[in-house]
Simulated assay, not measured.
Amino acid sequence: MEWVRGYYVVDGPSTIIVEDGTIDILGYRVGKGATLTVPYGRRIPIKIDGIVSVRPSYLNLKPANPQSYDIIDTIASKIIDFNRVVIVGPTDSGKSTLSLWALNKALSRGISKAYYLTVDIGQNEVYCPGFESLALINPPAIPGYTGSFRDIKLCFVGSFTPRESLDKYLECASELASKADGMLIVDTDGWIKDEGLRSKAILASTIKADIIIALGLSTEEVRLLKETSNIDTLSFPKLVKSEKSVEERKIHRERLIAQKLIGSKPRLVSIEKVILENIPLFKGKSLDRSIVKNLSPVLVYAEILKDNSIVAVYRGKKPNNIQGILLSEGWEKGLLAAVYGIGVHVGIVDKINYEKKMVIVITAYEGPIEKIEIGKARLTFSPL
């Protein structure tokens, strides 16, 4: 192996071993003996001054433009002058790369704590899509590599886009940001059209950001972001050229969720023994089967609330003679859930047994369950 000097990108999945010399990776320098992991689907810029091994193949190591590396490094150097930073931009604009580059750089310069808050609930690579997460950085932090993060704190939104749960999205961001007692960078999702841009401005204002970094936004979008948030905003072009398709992002999201469900089993849980949140059922008095059938022969279950309104589940054709909340049988299947017990865990709702008042949730968690919070996002694949 020869001594190498220069700028490169590494395509994942790859493992880089520093045999001698140094590597600068996303703003952090490592030396002889260091082993770095680049996850599947990621392309990471590095600067080599040494001897390296690349597994599974040197074909994953490609020469890169030094100017591209230096541009990101320069922006990251500006960011670390601020304590609370929100990065905003469209999908695949380089937000995650810049966030971790700046945090790595801050740690390399002696900062004691660097927090990464991802509110990209559609592509959360720190924990799982559907959740927002706050984590301390283990440098060098690399996008998509779970070993880069520790002391992870979670907040369940239950959707893959803020459009469906905007209040919860902002509430989670505020809650998690309040737990950061050091430098904080917030990596946002790519929803910037209309209400999306306004939501980012509200988020930045809510967490008391010192600066907003705008990537790939138009002059008008930057102006609106700054005026709505009343926070100084620095604007830069997109930092990456490649973009994932909608289908590629969906596949990646499902892979991230599937990783959290490895070893999952169906858990049969009594609805009367756990807290069940975010569903309209089991909040009133259950009606006897004879009364339910008199209301409509297609009803499977019904209950009456304190205001005398009815919540019911029907099979087949929706009845038109009942006023209230009507749910089709099987409405719950595939919904993403947060399972609370010893910590917070990922779950998928499989089925509700209305007669026995039991819910079947698929999860890798095997401990006691205290609460199940059901989201709006639905999986299109079976975790079993």
Rank of each mutant, 00 (worst) to 15 (best):
K244T: 00
V346K: 12
N308Y: 14
L276S: 07
V298I: 07
M1A: 09
V313Y: 13
I279S: 12
I360G: 00
P39C: 06
F282T: 11
A177P: 00
V119N: 03
K208W: 09
G94F: 08
S218V: 07
E370M: 04
G89N: 04
I111K: 08
A201W: 04
L287C: 05
K265F: 01
A102Y: 13
V52G: 00
I304M: 08
P139W: 10
S235I: 01
D81M: 05
I192F: 10
Y127E: 04
P63N: 13
S290L: 10
Q259L: 14
P56A: 05
I271D: 03
G324I: 11
C172P: 02
F160K: 08
I213Y: 14
G158P: 10
N60P: 01
A312E: 08
D92P: 00
K306P: 00
S264M: 09
G33T: 10
V54S: 02
G27M: 12
E248V: 02
I213Q: 13
Y28R: 04
L100S: 06
A204Y: 02
I374N: 01
I71L: 15
K168R: 15
G343L: 12
D288S: 12
D232I: 04
E227S: 11
G324N: 11
E329F: 15
E248N: 03
V344F: 12
I79P: 01
Y301E: 00
G12H: 12
L26H: 09
E329Y: 15
L268S: 08
V10E: 07
L134F: 04
R255Y: 05
R198Q: 01
V313N: 13
I51F: 03
L224P: 01
S286I: 07
L295V: 04
A258R: 05
L327S: 06
K333I: 11
V4N: 07
D49M: 06
L26N: 07
Y340A: 07
V269K: 06
A337F: 08
L225R: 06
Y116D: 06
S286G: 01
A135K: 08
P319D: 14
K113L: 13
G334D: 13
S77F: 03
V274P: 00
T146K: 15
V346R: 13
I212G: 06
N294A: 03
P368D: 14
E332N: 05
K200W: 04
A141Y: 05
R55L: 11
E227I: 03
V298E: 13
K241R: 15
T233W: 06
S270F: 09
S108C: 09
G196M: 04
Q323S: 14
F236R: 04
S205E: 14
L384T: 00
I16H: 02
Q123T: 06
I51T: 11
